[in-house]
Amino acid sequence: MTGISPAVVAASKLGLTFQTNDGPVQALSNVDLTIGKGEFVSFIGPSGCGKTTLLRVIADLEKPTSGTISVNGMTAEQAREKRAYGYVFQAAALFPWRTIERNVALPLEIMGLSRAEQAERIKRTLDLVNLSGFEKKYPWQLSGGMQQRASIARALAFDADLLLMDEPFGALDEIVRDHLNEQLLQLWARTNKTICFVTHSIPEAVYLSTRIVVMSPRPGRVSDIIESTLPKERPLDIRETPEFLAIAARVRDGLRAGHSYDD
């Protein structure tokens, strides 16, 4: 799959060093990565290994200090200006003074879409994340899981082919998380978007991804890339199959290797 379609994200020799008051911090070093269209790529690794930073570089929220990055064949900045991706932050980051509907409308207003088109897209994306009926509610009237779904809807409303998600379900409980994982997979299957997904959870990464990028810290780098052999159709109980457990074991080994390398 990766070989045939043109790369959505291509990073080569990517490095990023933060200049801080206590000296430079190397957050990323020598990252080579190609993500093809329609892939679901998870990034997993210990805290501080640069997952967020990598995602932010792809989103042009951070400039790399070495190497190159291209998104949809353009520079990251051009891609951002073309509004090539939707970004989901770790927290829902909804505007408290806007209703759910107006929150989803925010990127559409900024793009300058007509009222009618806005309404149409809001309805479609809220349906997609199962939030129909909550249009007029304010964020604080929704549960944490619903807020996070609203923020996914906001990212989807953009209708970009690339979705960048930074631990979107990190703060949620297991049950809600399972549910959202399932919904996310369905959404991905339906829309054929490319998704980059940061997570701390091995089962989540294995359950969702077509590829799992294992990262290790100091300096942040890619230590392993694992292709998933699971079928595209994945019921929740696929997580008890030997195949699933084998991939999970490989990811865990990758993570351990990254750590022992460090000590």
Partner: peptide, 9 residues
């Protein structure tokens, strides 16, 4: 929130 606005260009 500022980053969000940035991603929307």
């Amino acid at each position: 929130h500022l980053d969000l606005m940035h991603t929307y260009n």
